[in-house]
Amino acid sequence: MSFLVSLLFLQAASDMGPGTPPYARPGEESVDPYVADNRNAGASPFDGEGMAKAFHGQDGIRRIVDTMVEASSADPVIGEIFANHDKIRLKRTIFEQFCYILNAGCSYTGRDMAASHKDLGIQKADMNRLVEVLQRAMTTEGVAFQAQNRFLSKLAPMRRDVLQK
């Protein structure tokens, strides 16, 4: 049985080139191997469906993440940090992370926050800037301010892992 599963995985992986994890989307660059685990998302999911609804389900979350990643990359303050990073993967993994935390029915397959942001040189002002970009994306999607803050309360403790030591 497990042999069959690994065979399937190998099959899927070979579709996207050697070394690509099975959950990657076409066009993603490969990353150093790591073990996928929901705990890498850095926060436990909300209970119930309220938050997923407030974010308009997976469709709403996808719109918010796409807007956030594009706006961050174009931002005069933090854009530089995103330059030369794989936006196709970033949109997928951040979508998965948000969707997982908002309890909208996803697993998170990306790296943990410390590994993802190692050596990016992120300072506190960059973190606050990203929060503002995300707030704007959530407001554009029509997410109520109180729900926005509830979600941010899950991300806030991750700052310690994201900042440059």
């Binding site: 300072q123 606050n128 800037r129 503002e132």
Partner: peptide, 10 residues
């Protein structure tokens, strides 16, 4: 690091 002013949340 060089000083970097501004950056608090509103």
């Amino acid at each position: 690091r060089p000083l970097r002013n501004g950056g608090k949340l509103l």
